[in-house]
Amino acid sequence: MIELHDITQHYGVRPILREISLRIEPGEVIVILGPNGMGKTTLLGVMGGVLAPQRGKVWIDGMRRRNSEDEELAIRRRTVYLPDRPWLPATRTGREFLLAVGRLYDVEEFRLMEHVDRLLDLFDLADKGDSAIMTYSAGQTKKIALASALVAETPILLLDEPFSGGLDPAGILTLKRIIQHHGRRRDRTIVLTSPVPELVEEIATRVIVLHDGRLLAFDTIDGLQRLAGHRGPLDEVLQRFVFPDATRKLEGYLQDFGR
């Protein structure tokens, strides 16, 4: 369970997050949606513990973030936070990297080795698994980073834009299937961000819609459609939330300059 209370965050003068309070139940797959620069990554960073909010508190499984050494360490051991573009050890092989991450999370050794093999195979990295990460393409580095989040086998996964960064269609499909699988089994709490609603429509239990640092909505897709008064796809629903004038402006533009 992840609980945020009154989170306000600003790096400079302009607040990035404003008074956000929400509660994510165990086993949910939550997608944070919103246009660029609206605070998605910051909100995930606050949950992941890489940011200390100026105001507000974060609880993970009943333990408060950055409150005591033991609690924080326990939270870190049961949470994986994977940023959009993590820094990977260039000279280590993909397999070494995954093994090191798994050991850091105390995954049992034989299970870990088996899991690493399976993940490398799953993400089409079996041939590259024993090559240094510096020889990987952009998409392959993204895949190995995603595999590292999965190999830790933590109950909470926080993934920042997991579908971006040069991931090929096979990789996107694989990741979607894995998230869907965990969503169905409700064995892991997964929070991810995405600027593209179509990618996450099928996997989200609930959706957080952010705009200008404020929580516009936090509901199921059905709930969002009801709130927006529109039964269309998620991108159209999102547009009605975030840019209520955008449809009218677009129609006006196409009428005047569409020829």
């Binding site: 992941g48 513990g49 890489v50 360490l73 870190r76 051991r77 936070y81 940023p83 993590p86 820094w87 990977l88 050890p89 280590r92 070494e96 990297f97 090191a100 991450v101 850091l104 999370y105 590292s148």
Partner: peptide, 16 residues
């Protein structure tokens, strides 16, 4: 060695 093997943010977050 642990920090070097796992990069960022795993290293600073997890290596005690």
């Amino acid at each position: 060695d642990q920090l070097n093997a796992v990069g960022w943010p795993y290293g600073p977050m997890l290596v005690d």
